[in-house]
Design a binder for these strands. Structure first.
Lengths: 120, 120
DNA sequence: CTTGACTCTGACACGGATGTCAGACCCTAG
DNA sequence: CTAGGGTCTGACATCCGTGTCAGAGTCAAG
């Protein structure tokens, strides 16, 4: 599919799809005309990129992660980043943040449970 | 404590402590001189802010979350003037953020789990 | 009082992710 | 062939978190 369709189906601006390519996150095939041709699977990839970006990872880190996700998808990509240490660190960082948020939410739940009594 | 000490004890640049204040994340008392005076508890608050920021939340979102975390510290803060509807909305926001982060972390976990197998 | 460390505000700069536009090329329907 | 929409590259602009600096005020030790 062309970039316009991918943009429509993912809700991600074409500008960003080109940007992600430049950052090494996407490698669509090119027609002789220069047009980008994307696979169906690129839809998932783009959504993954968006998710990881919104989780605070930068494009460089995501570029290290994505090839391994491809492997999981079944494709036998020969290359995989060397250091999972960095990934573990990112994971731990996320875990902390999740715990942080969960504690906040639990607290909020407690407040909500009590609130009707103390407010009304 | 003054801003310099808070900066030293949290490892966060003074510039950022002032910035967080401007974004409504910190509200230190002010001496007549204009000097900021922070509480011990602000250390935890700052570390929380850092963690949430590094998890991809922006200062605006964090500003909505922080007041409810204060309650946990034991203070019966008369702030939090929101109705329970607002609280529920915040809770839902938190839930959504948590799900987002958890999906990202699970993704990382999957990558980490696969990586060693394909490397050795 | 003087000195030096600390703080204040305000401004400019920067990098990363994103928005937008211009000018040129490609492609398909008529 | 033509027209109109899709695509290309490249440049400039914006937002947010952060770095850094200048100039002025504060404060405590000597």
């Amino acid at each position: 599919m062309l970039i316009g369709e991918l943009s429509r189906r993912t809700g991600v601006h074409e500008r960003l799809l080109r940007y992600y390519e430049k950052q090494g996150l996407l490698w669509p095939e090119r027609a002789p005309s220069g047009y980008r041709h994307y696979q169906e699977s690129d839809i998932d990839t783009v959504l993954r990129i968006r998710r990881l970006l919104s989780a605070g990872l930068n494009t460089e880190t995501i570029a290290q992660v994505l090839p391994c996700i491809r492997i999981k998808a079944g494709n036998l990509v020969p290359v995989c980043p060397e250091t999972t240490d960095d990934l573990r660190r990112q994971r731990d960082r996320l875990t902390h943040a999740i715990e942080e948020l969960r504690a906040s939410r639990d607290l909020l739940d407690a407040v909500i449970a009590v609130a009707p009594l103390t407010l009304s």
